[in-house]
């Protein structure tokens, strides 16, 4: 790797970890994906709440309701509503960022083990960043993004990712940087650059 701050260039060979961490960063950090997940989570939470309330009201009526409406199977109604409430709550839990991250790792591990990611793994990627744009290229593909095309800087434990569309981005593994300080310096500079572009847009 050469350079510092925003002016850097390097190349690296894509490893299975890079593929997995890149996908995890997008699934848990891409604004479009996060908005989609939150919306689904809200729907399931509402269903869980409504079913829980139906269950509780059914239970109260079953125990203390007036005899005139006791012909209704309130206990059964209460039980079924509570089961659906738990079901909806479980689904909403399955959409939490942590659950999504775990699910993504399992999915990617399966795909890598089955050889479905062989086209990406082992590829050599050349990355070049400067004040005006971010460029990356492999033998078959290349992409040049101006900073205006970068919508977010996503950071994981060992990777950073500049998001250039809802589901793609440029990956920066920590290992290619000379030190943790250089990695942190690049992330800070990139965030500042994206914030500045967003503010002027």
């Amino acid at each position: 790797m050469t350079g510092s701050g925003l002016f850097i260039s390097f190349d690296y060979t894509v490893t299975p970890e890079d593929v997995t961490e890149g996908a995890v960063l997008i699934a848990t950090g891409s604004p479009t994906w996060v908005a989609t997940r939150r919306r689904s989570q809200r729907v399931f939470r509402r269903i869980a709440l409504v079913m829980f309330l139906v269950g509780v009201v059914g239970g109260v009526i079953a125990f203390a309701g007036p005899p005139a409406i006791n012909g209704v199977p309130w206990f059964r109604l209460c039980g079924i509503a509570l089961i659906f409430s738990v079901l909806a709550w479980l689904f909403s839990r399955g959409l939490s960022p942590g659950a999504q991250e775990r699910a993504q790792r399992v999915l990617l591990k399966g795909a890598i083990d089955r050889g479905e990611m062989d086209a990406l793994i082992g590829d050599v990627v050349f990355v070049e960043v400067n004040e005006a744009e971010v460029t990356w290229s492999t033998s078959l593909r290349s992409c040049r993004d101006s900073w205006e095309a970068i919508s977010a800087v996503l950071v994981g434990p060992d990777h950073a990712l500049l998001l250039d569309s809802p589901a793609t981005g440029v990956l920066f593994p920590r290992r290619v940087f000379a030190s943790d300080a250089t990695f942190a310096g690049f992330i800070a500079a990139a965030r500042e650059r994206v914030d500045r572009t967003g503010a002027s847009a």
Binding site: L140, R141, S142, C143, D145, S146, E148, A149, D164
Partner: peptide, 8 residues
């Protein structure tokens, strides 16, 4: 102009 993608 802001984004250029080349794919073989």
């Amino acid at each position: 102009g802001k984004r250029t993608v080349r794919a073989a």
